[in-house]
């Protein structure tokens, strides 16, 4: 009986395993092979260059920028999206009716094309947009939104947060709904109100959902591409040059497939380590307060 169940388990898992094999494992080994060559995928000749691509990547100004820019995005995006999605989920959870309707409403930006939203944002922030004309005429303020190395990453972070808040709020809303009302009622009898209830009951009991959302958000930062590609091209300077931008530039624009693969491998390792560290920190934090 047990063997039969095991077989059934493998059978059900097989589509995903096959999918992973074709679209993840085989390409991963392909990328590993490429990263040790100087092949551009076209030339009939190529050489094994050992770790040269990795050494070059570590020394590269653009790769180093991608490394730090990603953490800059993380510092901006993760708090914005966490606070925003939590706020949305609290609002939805407190609604007396039409919860599903509002949930779907907030989820819609997730379905919007990154290219389309980037073009709209570009229009809103352009020199002769209504916003900037108003700022100049009323406050004598001329802000170069996308030309500032501080504002450009912040704008991109806000855009991506806007897109994902609705999605993450679905996870948090289901977390909120699973908190028993009796806990709040008991707290109310003890005189706990407002912020005390939020910090002493809601947040600790929402910890598992917050944990998931935080890990998802951290992972997402390493995949940022469309918004900087359309809005800033990685600039000004290299202030929005992400890992994906650099991989794209090397592999598809400069046709350095070997070097691009080496950057992709480094990116994977950095992503893996970062998620591991963040996960550990969250676990330690949860354990400290007894939330896990």
């Amino acid at each position: 009986m047990k063997r039969r169940q095991e077989k059934l388990g493998w059978l059900f898992a097989s589509p995903y395993l096959l999918y992973s094999l074709i679209f993840f494992v085989i390409p991963l080994f392909g990328a590993l092979f490429l990263s040790f060559t100087n092949w551009n995928l076209i030339s009939p000749q190529y050489e094994n260059v050992g770790f040269l691509n990795f050494v070059k990547a570590v020394k590269s100004q653009e790769v180093r920028a991608a490394f730090f820019v990603t953490y800059k995005f993380m510092a901006m995006f993760v708090p914005i999206v966490l606070i925003g999605s939590l706020a949305i989920s609290l609002i939805i959870n407190s609604l007396p009716r039409f919860k599903s309707l509002f949930s779907v409403g907030y989820f819609l930006p997730y379905l919007a094309s990154g290219v389309a939203t980037s073009i709209v944002v570009r229009g809103i922030l352009s020199y002769n947009s209504a916003l900037n004309v108003w700022l100049r005429n009323t406050w004598d303020l001329n802000i170069n939104w996308l030309g500032s190395s501080t504002l450009a990453p912040l704008i991109i972070s806000v855009m991506i947060a806007w897109k994902f808040m609705g999605y993450y709020s679905l996870i948090l809303t289901s977390g909120l709904e699973s908190i028993p009302t009796e806990v709040y009622e008991a707290a109310a009898i003890d005189g706990a109100t407002g912020w005390v209830r939020f910090f002493k009951i809601t947040l600790p009991l929402l910890y598992p959902a917050m944990f998931t959302v935080t890990i998802l958000a951290v992972g997402l930062v390493f995949g940022i591409f469309t918004e900087p590609y359309v809005l800033t091209g990685g600039g000004p300077g290299l202030s929005t040059n992400t890992w994906q931008m650099e991989i794209y530039n090397q592999a598809f624009s400069k046709l350095n497939a070997g070097y691009g693969s080496a950057i992709a491998i480094i990116d994977s390792v950095v992503t893996f380590i970062t998620i591991l560290v963040v996960r550990k920190l969250l676990e330690v934090w949860g354990e400290k307060y007894g939330w896990d």
Binding site: R122, G123, L125, S126, Y127, N128, S129, N142, N144, W145, L146, G147
Partner: peptide
């Protein structure tokens, strides 16, 4: 020079 993005300047 205006290096800020502008629509059809």
């Amino acid at each position: 020079l205006l290096t800020q993005v502008a629509t059809d300047p």
